[in-house]
Amino acid sequence: MKRALQTTLLYGLLCVGVVLTLLPLLWMVSASLMPSGEANAIPPRLLPSHVTFEHYRDLFTRLNLGRYTLNSVYLATTITSIAVLLNAMAGYAFAKLPFRGRDRTFQLLLAALVIPGQVSTLPLFLMLKGFGLVNTYWGVVIPGMASIFGIFLVRQYAQSIPDSILDAARIDGAGELRIFRSFVLVLCLPVLVTLGIFTFLGVWNDFLWPLIVLTDRDLYTLPVALANLVGEHVQDTELMMAGAVLTVLPVLVLFVALQRYYLAGIMAGSVKE
């Protein structure tokens, strides 16, 4: 009897949690499909009276959101590919390839993790302005090409590569680049996928930096464009919701498809001791 009560309570609480967690997201999708004006009805509607895709059409035709989507995809894929490669190389070196001052450098990197990113924002902007990179894609790409967290993540994983494999390859006459390409990248694939998802989601969701660097409308990423739309079309609730769906949906799909790797990455990142 007591057991049954506990079970009911447990599932009851969890279901309330699921409803509260999903409600904002489901309402976002539902409101994006409502005819204009219906999201501002009293009493509020949960579902559209009839489903319409006019707001999505509006976004792509009148408001140029296709362009912003492409910008986001382009930036996220570019930064992810470069960052995964550079962090993989450095992480592997810090795990397996000794060089002068290596361990001290790594300790310094870890210590630098306590500096909040915002501190570097203003001078970084001036630097990139000096190079003529403000208001270009490169202004967003360059600072994201490597990260301390990424190096740390790969290093943790690469330490488990058996030395015997690397040695055997060396004895067979393989060069270090060849070993990296044919063995290290393959053996580290799980952590590289994890790092790739982290980087992609981080770039896709980032707001402060693209907001600062990209001033030309044609270069806007989705979050910047969306924040800008809010300023101009604040009354148009359904349209805003369609824009929000478009921004959020790709990352949600990516996460659900690859969540195993993503969650593994969080655990690895949290086990610092």
Binding site: L14, G17, V18, T21, L22, L23, P24, L25, W27, M28, A31, A39, N40, A41, I42, P44, L201, W204, N205, F207, L222, P223, V224, L226, A227, V230, T237, M240, M241, G243, A244, V245, T247, V248, V251, L252, L254, F255, V256, Q259, Y262, L263
Partner: peptide, 30 residues
């Protein structure tokens, strides 16, 4: 349950802030 509770974490902050603005609306908000 784990996946559902994790979903808000991966969402874009700007987008969900827009959504919550409407949820918080004094007259029309849920």
């Amino acid at each position: 349950f784990r996946t559902v509770f994790f979903l808000p974490v991966v969402t874009t902050l700007v987008a969900v802030a827009v959504v919550w603005r409407y949820l918080y609306h004094p007259r029309f908000g849920l």
